[in-house]
Computed example of a mutant assay.
Amino acid sequence: MFMRLFVCFLATFMANGVARFGYVVLIPLLILSGKLTENQSIQLAIAVMVGYVFGSAALSSLQKRMSLEGIAKISFLVIALSFFACYLDRLPFAWAWIWRFLAGVAASCLMVLSAPLCLSLVKEQHRSYASGFIFSGIGVGVVCSGFILPHFASDIDMAWIFLGAVGLVAFLLSCVFLKTLHPPKNSTHKEAPFKISTFFALLLVSVVLNAIGYLPHTLFWVDYLVRSLHFSKAVAGASWAFFGFGAASGTILSATLAKTLGLKNASSIVILMKSISCVIAMYSTDITWLNLSIFLMGFGTTGNLTITSTMAYHIMGREHFVQASSLVTLAFGIFQAVFSFVFTWALGHFSFYEMFLVSGVALFLAFVVLLPVPKSTFKNN
């Protein structure tokens, strides 16, 4: 059981920790090395987010033909191959964009499946901690990216090889330890229709606002520190690692908060921490305060993912958990992708202060919309 949990941990490690957030470290390196223009480097970041949207939609179709474990294995392989594909930088830019898009599709599938693949097998009293361990893979991936990838600044091509090799190891481990327990859905099997309740709709609105609110930190942070505030690549990479430290601790500590204070109270605290992160980034350019800002955003990002996953489980039930997770990921992916283009356009028209202001307001509204949801909805917490 532990190795199955570990592979689910690797799913979030590869999907968000490396494929999504790890690329943030590479953006200024690719620009300064002359490999890509500023627009191209950011477009590759957005390609993953666009893939997220299609990944959630593709998953429902794939479930009818493949086991959940089979989908996860293929997703691991696609992410690994996408890194090797980006190594071939002499090919047209569209080649890299398509592979980053496919990595986004695969990452979306892994993020949806990481909890359902094992959470239902865990006892109720341990479920919050198991969820925390699974999603801590995001933080660990960010920490590794922040400290390791800046060392490839003088030979950026080797960064792609390194990331591809890590992806292949994760794929091989999934082949060994992900035994099929969730076969393809039988189309003749009748199950209760999936209906979006009022409380789940409010949760989706909160998810959408979180998708908007965390973008300036997670799309531009390293580039902002290097090219706008003129910090060194090493300092900027180390600062980004604080996002990872926050993300890793956020999953575990948010589970403790949920156990102690209940899911709703824990959710409120975590989202408000993300709002405070934006306020700090608005008013300070001191590296100590900036590190605190990115740490809080990391803590809140994975903490919110962990709590939202558990909230969705309680609201929609085990039978519809995969569908609920898929819808959460789809909603998050759509607004993440759309507002990535919006914020990228805004770079040439608005200051970072204004972008952090918009994100802070969005996160505060994400807290407000959950206020009508009664605590009794999560009666087991």
Rank of each mutant, 00 (worst) to 15 (best):
A170I: 06
A106E: 03
W160V: 12
S136V: 07
A170Y: 02
W97I: 09
H151T: 01
G137M: 08
L117C: 08
L110N: 08
W99F: 14
G141H: 10
A153N: 10
I138K: 02
C175H: 00
M158P: 00
A94M: 13
L121D: 15
C118Y: 15
K123D: 11
V143R: 07
A165I: 12
F147D: 01
L149I: 02
S120N: 15
K123S: 13
L172Y: 03
I98H: 04
G139C: 03
L117T: 06
F133G: 03
L119Q: 10
H126Y: 08
C144R: 00
R127Q: 15
R100Y: 06
W97H: 06
F171C: 06
S136A: 14
L172K: 10
Q125S: 15
W99S: 05
L172P: 00
C144E: 02
K123Q: 15
F147L: 12
A96D: 09
C144H: 03
A94G: 07
S114L: 07
V140K: 06
A170T: 07
F101C: 04
I156H: 12
G164D: 11
L149H: 00
F135N: 05
S131G: 13
V105I: 15
V142G: 05
D155W: 08
A159P: 01
D155F: 12
L121A: 11
M111W: 06
V166S: 00
G104M: 08
I138E: 10
K123H: 11
V142Y: 06
F101Y: 05
G164Q: 10
S136P: 05
C144K: 01
L168H: 05
H126I: 01
D155V: 02
W97C: 07
F162V: 03
P116D: 14
F133P: 01
M158Y: 12
V140G: 04
R127C: 06
L168S: 04
G167V: 05
V122D: 04
R100D: 09
H126F: 13
G104C: 06
A159I: 10
M111D: 11
Y129C: 07
S145E: 02
C144F: 14
W97D: 09
S174L: 02
L168Y: 10
E124N: 11
A130K: 02
G146H: 01
L121P: 03
S131P: 02
F135R: 02
A115T: 12
G137I: 05
W160Q: 07
V105L: 13
V122C: 01
A130P: 01
L173T: 08
V122G: 04
L102W: 08
G167S: 04
S136W: 10
G141T: 03
S145H: 02
G167W: 06
F147Y: 09
I161Q: 10
R127T: 05
I161M: 12
L113K: 13
L168D: 06
G167D: 05
L119T: 10
W95S: 01
A106V: 04
S174D: 05
V166M: 15
D157V: 05
W95R: 06
V142S: 04
G164P: 09
C118W: 11
G167E: 03
L172R: 06
R127D: 08
Y129D: 09
F152R: 04
V169I: 13
V142K: 00
